[in-house]
């Protein structure tokens, strides 16, 4: 009877000992999150970052997607194309909120096959550049193109599965050792 109780106690101790590190972990996470443990270094200097995500080339025009990936709001002040002050229209606003996007439309007589450099300058003088190695008209969306991509998907994703299934009768015949080898080889390849 006595032994049985001690066994019961032992079980509870194990459960508690497994919980203590978890409780401590939550405590540490809470302290970091509330800023009690570590005071993050702050700076008064503006840090700005704009990603020029995409440049679409239309006839006589560039359509640019901008993403503010910095910690603060950013005001787009100037646009330089091929190092010359240029301009355009930005929407919804030239002030891009943190993690916000803006679309910039620039009328520009770009030359096919030649490089094109786009520079964005913010109100605090930060400069962000993107270079297109050779300017060509951005291909429009067509069903033909979509069909091509679907075909690629079929060739890469569906046909190999069918081919693999054709191997099944052969695989059923081999020894379990070889079967395990092939299975682990496949798994390894997939992970790679």
């Amino acid at each position: 009877m006595k032994r049985a109780i001690s066994k019961e106690n032992h079980k509870w101790l194990r459960i508690i000992s497994s919980l203590i590190p978890l409780i401590l972990l939550f405590l540490v996470v809470y302290l970091i999150a509330t800023g009690f443990a570590i005071q993050a270094p702050t700076t008064t200097l503006p840090i700005e970052r704009i990603n020029i995500e995409r440049i679409v080339l239309n006839p006589e025009e560039l359509v640019v997607t901008l993403l503010n990936s910095g910690p603060n709001d950013v005001e787009v002040a100037q646009v330089l194309v091929n190092d010359a002050i240029w301009g355009g229209f930005i929407e919804p606003s030239n002030v891009i909120p943190r993690l916000g996007r803006a679309i910039l439309t620039i009328p520009y007589p770009w030359v096919e096959g030649e490089p094109l450099t786009l520079t964005i300058i913010t109100s605090n003088g930060f400069k962000f550049k993107k270079e297109i190695e050779a300017a060509i008209l951005t291909p429009p969306f067509t069903f033909e193109q979509a069909y091509t991509y679907i075909l690629i998907g079929v060739y890469v994703g569906i046909i190999p599965v069918f081919l693999g299934e054709g191997w099944f009768p052969f695989l059923r015949g081999i020894s379990s050792r070889w079967f395990r080898f092939l299975l682990s080889f496949t798994a390894g390849m997939l992970i790679f």
Partner: peptide, 26 residues
Amino acid sequence: MPIRSNSLVAIGSVPAHGFHPLNSAS
């Protein structure tokens, strides 16, 4: 073209001379 909203803001300075955006969507 991206959808043009009312909040279209002009930015920078397209040259005031010697440039005419002929086929531009703008």
